[in-house]
Design a binder for these strands. Structure first.
Lengths: 130, 130
DNA sequence: CTAGAATCTGACGTGGACGTGAGGTTCAAC
DNA sequence: GTTGAACCTCACGTCCACGTCAGATTCTAG
């Protein structure tokens, strides 16, 4: 599969795919003419890379992790990095939950006021079973 | 409280605090000489700002949200932004959980292999209660 | 009153993940 | 064989949350 097709299938830009190669994250084959050629599995791999980026992993860590992903096993050093990053993600998730709750609190109180002000008086409870 | 003290109490750099003012996120009083003066409540506010940044909110959104935080109520437009950002955080949290699980899967399988290879055969279970 | 610490205002530097041309090459179709 | 789309390699531009340095001003302790 050529770079444009992979870009379209994944929603990632062509530039980004070239950038991944530059960083050693996703290195494709080359045609005789020099064009990049990706396997079908590239789609899933790109999705995973995007998830890792979204989780805040830097390129270097992703590049270090990808071989383990492909192989299904890891050297002790790679394993250490994996655990470190997983713990970092756990921490990030907790902070995210905190921020979300803060926003939610503002929404319920502020929203209740705002609603009362134009929906007609005080609702029974701010509500929020979840 | 002066800027250095607030920086020390929050662990945020002096430069960052000035940046928050530049972006209209946290605007302090001024002494006659022009030095910034923050209230005690600034400590909590800065923590909240940090949480929002960590959650991926851009300065503009934070700046738009802070008045609602201070007032405890929000205009309909602000409320819409709050809900939008909360949902964005929820989505981010789900993606984060996904990435975490992917890492975890690699860790357990790869870790089991890796452990067996140097700890002496197949352990009963990959283990990892925490 | 004076020294030194803290703060002030610009203003340029940084790092990461790409965006965006410029200018040339390769590929698929006709 | 030729054309137009897709691709190639530089290489500079961008955005954001600050870092960092310079040079001037203000505050606080003795």
């Amino acid at each position: 599969m050529r770079i444009g097709e992979l870009a379209e299938k994944t929603g990632v830009s062509v530039r980004a795919l070239r950038y991944y190669e530059e960083k050693g994250i996703l290195v494709p084959e080359r045609s005789t003419g020099g064009h990049r050629s990706y396997p079908e599995s590239g789609v899933g791999v790109v999705w995973l890379i995007q998830q890792f980026y979204a989780a805040g992993l830097p390129s270097k860590s992703i590049q270090a992790i990808m071989p383990s992903v492909r192989a299904g096993r890891a050297t002790p050093e790679a394993l250490e990095l994996l655990v470190t990053e997983r713990d970092r993600i756990d921490k990030a998730a907790r902070e995210l939950a905190g921020a979300r709750d803060r926003l939610d609190a503002i929404i319920t109180t502020a929203g209740a006021d705002s609603c009362a002000s134009h929906c007609g008086e005080n609702a029974p409870e701010p509500g929020l079973p979840q």
